[in-house]
């Protein structure tokens, strides 16, 4: 792109806020009652993380992979792509994340989420619960129709934020690898929401901040202790 410095964030927003929010309304109407099992599966994730044994962790990873696969196809490719030609590429990103979670977590068993202790663990759980329980309320709280609720496992934003919460409570290299796509999405959607003057832009941006700052702070703390 030539003269890229002359472009602002608003130049990349190719739809109106009304059209964007209406997508969720129509989406929810079309997939009802999928919201109920999606919420139930979301609620099961932290419970599975508390169970001992590799099988629970593998099942958790499988559910989480499904939570990324559905919005990839059902929302980003089938619906968002109708108003944003980049939708298909975002869908591909979500599909890759689903695959990575399935391979690293469910197949290889290299993803260990929890326990939810310590600052990172507790913050991660809080972030996940905010994505699962609070995010669906944002449509109504913001004065839009309740039918436009964004739900974890069905809509991309709460899925990415909730996943970052879970990964904040996870250890190891796999968690860092799996954080990349949710982080990028939170930045992308944060920028779009910012341009639309939607205050909920604070949530994906806060998730980015937490996932970057907390592990770094933990690292510094440990380094100071051992010095």
């Amino acid at each position: 792109m030539s003269e890229w410095w002359t472009y602002s964030l608003a130049d990349f927003l190719m739809f109106s806020p009304r059209t964007y929010w209406r997508l969720f309304e129509l989406y929810n109407r079309d997939i009802w009652p999928a919201q109920l099992p999606a919420l139930a599966a979301g609620a099961a994730l932290p419970l599975l993380a508390r169970r001992r044994g590799a099988a629970a962790q593998r099942f958790l990873a499988l559910l989480l992979a499904a939570a990324w696969a559905w919005p990839a196809w059902g929302f980003l490719f089938a619906r968002y792509d109708t108003i944003n030609w980049a939708g298909r590429y975002f869908a591909l990103g979500f599909a890759v994340e689903a695959l990575l979670i399935a391979v690293l977590g469910a197949a290889a068993g290299r993803l260990r989420i929890g326990p939810f202790d310590g600052a990172a663990g507790r913050t991660g759980l809080a972030l996940f619960l905010a994505a699962l329980l609070f995010y669906p309320l944002l449509a109504g709280i913001s004065g839009r129709v309740w039918a436009g609720a964004e739900i974890f496992g069905l809509a991309p934003d709460p899925t990415a934020i909730g996943t970052l919460g879970l990964l904040l409570a996870a250890r190891g290299h796999s968690a860092r690898v799996l954080s990349v796509i949710p982080l990028v999405w939170c930045l992308v959607t944060g920028a779009a929401l910012w341009t639309m003057n939607a205050w909920q832009t604070l949530l994906p941006l806060a998730a980015v901040l937490l996932i970057v700052v907390l592990p770094a702070a933990r690292h510094c703390y440990k380094k100071n202790i051992t010095m």
């Binding site: 190719m14 739809f15 109106s16 059209t19 209406r22 997508l23 129509l26 619906r79 109708t82 108003i83």
Partner: peptide, 9 residues
Amino acid sequence: WITFNVGDD
């Protein structure tokens, strides 16, 4: 631009 980009609504 923007105004007619209303998707499948």
